[in-house]
């Protein structure tokens, strides 16, 4: 079975540095700041085994377990399953039709040089899950 990627809180932040080279599933290379919604959709289509889900932000609050982090609660996919993840405030998420967004666009700009919108309740983010077998 495909291996599971790490959760955002533990991912390598250099992915998000402005100018970082990202390889799409089509083989195309793009800079992280140039990615668009259809790049994710197309990559999931051709990669097989992965499915793009819509994850709507329903709550944003300071993490109680991990000071300095932000707890983001999402409702995911058609089943509206609720998922909470703790991330640094500068962690960017890709919002459908809008692009990179974080809880602290100022910190994202300082740390990564990546221009972000402010992530808010109601934003719908790109997430991926395993495609169920046919």
């Amino acid at each position: 079975p495909p291996s599971l990627a790490p959760a955002p809180a533990s991912s390598n932040p250099s992915h998000f540095m402005k100018g970082a080279i990202i390889q799409l599933a089509t083989g195309e290379l793009k800079r992280v700041e140039d990615l668009q919604t259809h790049d994710f959709m197309r990559s999931a289509e051709v990669s097989g085994g992965l499915k793009i889900d819509s994850s709507m932000v329903v709550d944003v609050r300071a993490s109680q377990q991990r000071p300095g982090l932000v707890s983001l609660q999402f409702t995911v996919g058609e089943q509206q399953s609720k998922v909470t993840i703790d991330v640094p405030p500068e962690h960017p998420f890709f919002v459908f039709g809008q692009g990179w967004s974080s809880c602290s666009p100022e910190r994202t700009a300082q740390l990564y040089g990546l221009a972000c919108h402010h992530l808010q309740v109601g934003d719908v983010c790109v997430s991926i899950t395993l495609q169920p077998p046919p």
């Binding site: 990627a5 959760a7 991912s11 250099s14 990202i22 599933a25 990559s43 399953s81 997430s127």
Partner: peptide, 25 residues
């Protein structure tokens, strides 16, 4: 001779949250 620096290339799926099916049940 100067060796060319290798530029890291990251896969697209490393940029977005991977939600495990167990989270979604």
């Amino acid at each position: 001779n100067v060796e060319p620096r290798s530029v890291p290339v990251f896969p697209w799926h490393s940029l977005v949250p991977f939600l495990e099916p167990s989270h979604l049940g």
